[in-house]
Simulated scan of single mutants.
Amino acid sequence: MGILQDILSPASGVIAPVVTKLLDFIPDPTARAQAEAAAYKEAADRVQQLDLAQVEVNRGEAGNSSVFVAGWRPFIGWVCGAALAYQYIAMPLLVWVADLVVGHAVPRPPTLDDQLTTILLGMLGLGGLRTLEKMKGVQ
């Protein structure tokens, strides 16, 4: 049952217990294993269908001539990069230079949310996984 729960993990809190309970009604271990294998195959097929549908959506977005459709992902990357540059490079340097010029501590400019690195690490993690897929030859 572990494989089925893994494939259904996003919805496992709802679906997996129901499937487990239904499989418990099959007394024959061989028939139960066959039913579990069939459920696993059906779940895997559904997940693959959803993945393929998402690939088509991504392809449509990327091929669109409108910057509002095709450009949102690069925009998020640039915004995140600019925010990181401000938060960790520009602002500390500006504060340091202002302290030198004025001769005493100056009020600090506003900082950005601490979740910025979490967002960046998520984006880079996804990029890293895609790099790994490319290295393994996955299209």
Rank of each mutant, 00 (worst) to 15 (best):
L4G: 02
L4V: 10
Q5R: 14
Q5F: 03
A11Y: 10
A11T: 13
S12P: 01
G13E: 03
V14A: 05
I15N: 02
A16S: 15
A16P: 00
V19C: 02
V19T: 02
V19A: 02
V19G: 01
L22A: 13
L22M: 09
D24K: 13
D24S: 15
F25R: 13
I26A: 00
P27Q: 05
R32I: 00
R32Y: 01
A33V: 03
E36V: 04
A37K: 03
A37P: 02
Y40E: 06
K41D: 12
A44G: 04
A44F: 04
D45M: 07
D45P: 01
R46S: 11
L50H: 07
Q54R: 11
V55L: 13
E56T: 08
E56S: 09
R59M: 05
G60K: 03
E61T: 01
E61G: 02
G63Q: 02
N64F: 02
N64D: 09
S65W: 00
S65H: 05
V67K: 09
F68Y: 14
A70E: 00
W72L: 09
W72N: 12
R73T: 04
P74R: 03
I76N: 09
G77Q: 04
W78H: 12
C80L: 13
Y86N: 04
I89G: 04
A90V: 15
P92Q: 05
P92V: 07
W96S: 15
W96T: 14
V97Q: 10
V97I: 15
D99Y: 13
D99E: 15
L100G: 13
G103K: 06
G103W: 04
V106C: 10
P107W: 07
R108F: 10
R108N: 14
R108W: 09
P109I: 08
P110Q: 14
T111M: 14
L112G: 01
D113E: 10
D114K: 14
D114N: 14
Q115L: 09
L116I: 12
L121A: 10
G122V: 03
M123E: 04
L124N: 10
L124W: 09
L124E: 10
G125Q: 05
G125H: 06
G125A: 06
G125E: 02
L126K: 13
R130Q: 12
R130F: 05
T131F: 09
E133I: 05
E133A: 14
E133C: 11
K134Q: 13
K134Y: 04
K134P: 00
Q139G: 10
